[in-house]
Design a protein around this nucleic acid. Sequence first.
DNA 1: CGGCCCCTGACG
DNA 2: CGTCAGGGGCCG
Length: 276
Amino acid sequence: MPELPEVETVRRVVERQIKGASILSVEVINNHVIAYPDEGSFVSSLVGEKIDRMDRRGKFLSIVFDSQDRLFIHLRMTGCLIVAPPEYLREKHTHLVIGLSNGKELRYIDPRRFGRFWFIRKGEDSSITGVDKLGIEPFNLTPLFLKENYGKRNKPIKEMLLDQTIIAGIGNIYSDEILFSSCINPEERCKDLDDSDWIILSKKIPETMEWAIRENDISDADYLNGKGRDYRNTPFLSVYGREGEKCKRCSTILKKTVVGGRSSVYCPLCQKRKGK
DNA sequence: CGGCCCCTGACG
DNA sequence: CGTCAGGGGCCG
């Protein structure tokens, strides 16, 4: 499901509804989603914890407790977190329900069950989650950083933008959107990009992320009504999911291709290939 | 590195 | 029925 802007939206919506509450109960409906530690320790560790705040790092979320213990969450493709009153209909694929002292429940819903939870004690090594391997956040980028980290690679720029160890948080949707607004072909090899490309990418990557976060802004009620899913901003996208439609800049028909195993939509005129 | 895996659901 | 889906990990 979600890339950085959606994960950030979840963080904002959920944080303001759970902040300051304590965990009264943890109901594990499907322990598949608990990556670490085992189910018993997971539940007993969480009960009694008081929530200080929620953080985001790349596409990871973490609930930070007063104790400085943390609950890391990765939603992967279809994971959803919602805050609901206990009487709110419990839908199919609800795997985890956390009862809070403010009378609400934090629920995890995930049809494909790819998402994972990790409970990490204060001071405990968090590397099991994968969060430590992440590159920098996609804000305040410099052209030099991009050139140094991508510039020598003989790989398509689209593929490199998805590498979470260099920049964290960009996924398949926003890599297409970033390349469209930068007028760069998704299959362009990094080594064929020049300084002007790195300059424009250093601007368009943060701009695209910030723009999408703003577009995703939603009230608690609307978020819950959409089951924590429907806010996602496909209506605002320029190219993703718009194969066969007209380019909004030049009206050329948008094309779809496969880059590094991922589908990619682009404008063949605005995003011409330069190198080969 | 490419290829396969994890899963369910939507769509052609 | 087959194919694809916004994620990432692991294997050889």
